[in-house]
Amino acid sequence: MGVTITGLSLSIDGRTILENVSAAVPAGAVIGLLGPNGAGKSTLLRLIAGIAKPDAGAVLLDNVAVGSLPRREAARRIALLEQNAAPSVDLSAHDVVLLGRIPHRSRVLGGFGGDDDREVVAEALHAVGVGDLADRLWHTLSGGQQQRVQIARAIAQHPSLLLLDEPTNHLDVSAQLSLLSLVRQQVRARGLTAIAALHDLNLAAAYCDHLLLLDAGRLVAAGTPDEVLRPSVIAAVYGVDCDVIPHPRGGHPVIVFSPAGREAERAESFRGPS
């Protein structure tokens, strides 16, 4: 059960985006998808969602090949939160969440016109802590509130797999922490599996049960945060020098970066003026 990825490869215009990526992701967990810019994180999420087709390989969700599902069936099982999503017209938070009902409603009369899903929408907004913002317009919400509304939309879609593409982008620290703890809490409460592309290794270490590390389209490490986030691995993928220490209270790994250039500076200042 969970998500099984076997031999996914994709190239676009002769450029390899993903190369033979295989991984098994446990059900009911929060999985962090890590890697430098351009490593193929967003593309992998699109392939898992079944929105893009791989050149080779397959994605199995609960033993069903996502690629073989009609789009509508896939949308009932997998919700995707895009990076920097913005609507083309003014929508209320309620309208945004109602979008999540589209794969479950009549093809013909199921859009914003639906009044029957008010309870689902209200429950989802309440669950993510913005129950009082239902009538607020999208552009009047803060970045953190917009992401919460998007998560409510995903919840209203009643998926078993939740995909998030850099959900903490452009959020302040407190919003980043509360958003990921919300994701964790919803995953636990609803028995979902979540895969989140993340940039911040420390956030990933703090909130994810399992990590996948991509580098230049290939999966270079997979496992628990302790297994994946080792100084040698981080140095090889990101080219940075770091130490990994246990969090003083949580015990999860904390990555402490050694700022490039600062050590030489310090050594110089110790020597003092000559």
């Binding site: 699109r46 969602a49 929105i51 789009r71 509508r72 069936e73 896939a74 949308a75 009932r76 997998i78 919700a79 995707l80 895009e82 999503a85 913005a86 609507p87 083309s88 017209v89 929508l91 979008l99 999540g100 589209i102 794969p103 409603r105 009549s106 093809r107 013909v108 009369l109 199921g110 859009g111 914003f112 016109g113 879609q157």
Partner: peptide, 23 residues
């Protein structure tokens, strides 16, 4: 008018529409 649900699904763009089950 019969396609109005599909039109609604495009409000967050093509990828979002696809993830809501639209071809």
């Amino acid at each position: 008018v019969l396609a109005s649900t599909r039109l609604d699904a495009f409000v967050f763009g093509d990828t979002a529409a696809a993830s809501l089950g639209i071809n």
